[in-house]
Computed example of a mutant assay.
Amino acid sequence: MNEQGHKRVIRMTLEYDGTRYVGWQRQANGVSVQEKVEEALSRHLGERIRVTAAGRTDAGVHALGQVISFPTTSSLPVRAIGRGVLPYLPRDIAVLDATEAPPNFNARRHARLRWYRYFILNRSVAPAVGKAFVTHVPYKLDLSIMEEVAQILGGHHDFRAFRAKTCTAVRTVLTMHKPEIHELGDGLIMIDFKCQSFLQNMVRIMAGVMVNCARGKMSRDAVREMLATGVRPNEAVTLAPHGLFLYKVLYHL
């Protein structure tokens, strides 16, 4: 406890492999990343710690820049909090940095931009290495069509057709940056998705729509109709979670 017994707020950036977790958020049906992080911090700091995260990543989704915040009465230097918790964490979760935050800082509420990256391996042969971090698409994709779909998705739209059936979000009208498609070589494609907030499964459904349009299984007009009507056709598939990473969260644009 610090000298005054007052709580301070710590901000941390985490990296994790989501393969063996049910997602970020605590759930009754399995082990979550949140559970492991809170257990580790509680053991290290000697008090019950509950954290708030910028993004609630789904089962199997990874993070390179998940941001969390939590209050603590610990008087440990912030560097000792960040470094000292590492031995209590499993090897697939790491703390990249820890800083002192303003007393009212909330990692979720104060986020201004969430940046996700989706990785697709577009070649005939499935990967033998790194298959937990990329989605394999064996069919030839037309990247020019993917660019056209990205142009359609960018902007201010109602994305209610691009969410899971279990999504309970009330606000579905969002302003999306145009998705950016990058060819990294040897069939590896990276797509950047940026928005202040996302609906459940929204990124994976957008990626699925882009892939099926690029395969010729879905038209660009069908994408426009999804945005106009809020109806999701069967061709608008949800791509696998393991190709998705929460890359970065921005607080000052």
Rank of each mutant, 00 (worst) to 15 (best):
R56W: 10
T57R: 00
T57L: 02
D58C: 01
G60N: 04
V61R: 01
H62W: 09
Q66G: 04
T72G: 07
T72C: 04
S75V: 00
S75Y: 10
P77V: 02
P77Q: 01
A80I: 03
A80N: 09
I81W: 10
I81G: 05
G82K: 01
G82S: 02
G84T: 07
V85A: 02
Y88E: 09
Y88V: 03
L89R: 00
R91L: 15
I93C: 07
V95R: 02
D97A: 12
A98P: 11
E100W: 14
F105Q: 09
N106R: 15
R109H: 13
R112W: 13
L113P: 01
W115N: 09
Y116E: 00
R117Y: 05
R123S: 07
R123N: 01
S124D: 06
V125G: 00
V125Q: 06
A126H: 05
A128I: 09
V129D: 03
G130C: 04
G130P: 13
K131L: 13
F133W: 13
T135V: 14
P138S: 05
K140D: 11
L141E: 08
M146G: 11
E147L: 05
E147K: 09
E147A: 05
E148I: 00
V149Q: 09
I152L: 06
G154V: 03
G155F: 09
F159Q: 01
F159E: 02
R160P: 00
A161F: 00
F162V: 05
F162P: 10
A164G: 15
A164P: 13
A164Q: 07
K165L: 06
T166S: 13
C167N: 08
C167I: 08
V170D: 13
R171S: 14
R171P: 01
T172V: 10
V173T: 15
L174H: 11
T175L: 08
H177A: 15
K178I: 13
K178W: 13
P179A: 04
G185E: 01
G187Q: 11
L188F: 01
M190A: 12
M190G: 02
D192Q: 03
D192V: 00
F193E: 00
C195H: 10
Q196C: 01
Q196H: 10
